[in-house]
Amino acid sequence: MEPSRFLGGMGLERRNIADATEREIDIAIRALVEEGLSRATTVLTEHRSALEDGARLLMERETLSAEDLPGLVALRAQDRKNGDGAAA
Rank of each mutant, 00 (worst) to 15 (best):
A86E: 14
D79A: 06
D84L: 05
R23Q: 15
R15G: 10
L7C: 07
R80T: 02
L7F: 15
E46D: 08
D53F: 00
A66W: 15
A66K: 02
V73E: 08
A66Y: 07
D79Y: 00
L12V: 10
G11C: 00
A88E: 12
E34A: 12
R48P: 00
R61W: 03
V33C: 12
D26I: 15
L58H: 05
G54Q: 02
L72K: 01
Q78M: 13
S49L: 05
R14T: 10
E60L: 01
A18G: 05
D26T: 07
E60R: 06
G85S: 12
R23V: 11
E62A: 13
V33G: 04
I27M: 06
A86W: 10
D26W: 04
S38P: 04
R56C: 14
M59R: 12
L58Y: 01
I27Y: 10
G83D: 07
G85F: 00
P70W: 03
E52A: 10
N82T: 15
M59K: 06
R39L: 01
G9W: 04
A31H: 08
N16F: 05
A20Q: 09
D19M: 14
L69G: 01
V43D: 07
L69P: 00
M59I: 08
D19W: 10
L64S: 04
K81M: 07
E46K: 02
E46G: 07
S65D: 04
R56K: 13
R5G: 11
Q78N: 06
G54L: 00
V73T: 06
T42S: 09
A88P: 14
I25Q: 03
E67Q: 07
A31D: 07
E35A: 12
R30A: 07
D26S: 14
M1V: 11
T42Q: 15
A50I: 07
L12H: 02
A88K: 09
L69R: 05
A77Y: 11
A55N: 04
S4Q: 00
E22A: 11
T45F: 14
I17L: 03
D19H: 13
L32K: 14
E34V: 12
G83E: 04
A74V: 13
A86I: 15
G36M: 08
R76M: 07
G54A: 01
G9L: 03
M59F: 12
A87G: 10
L72V: 01
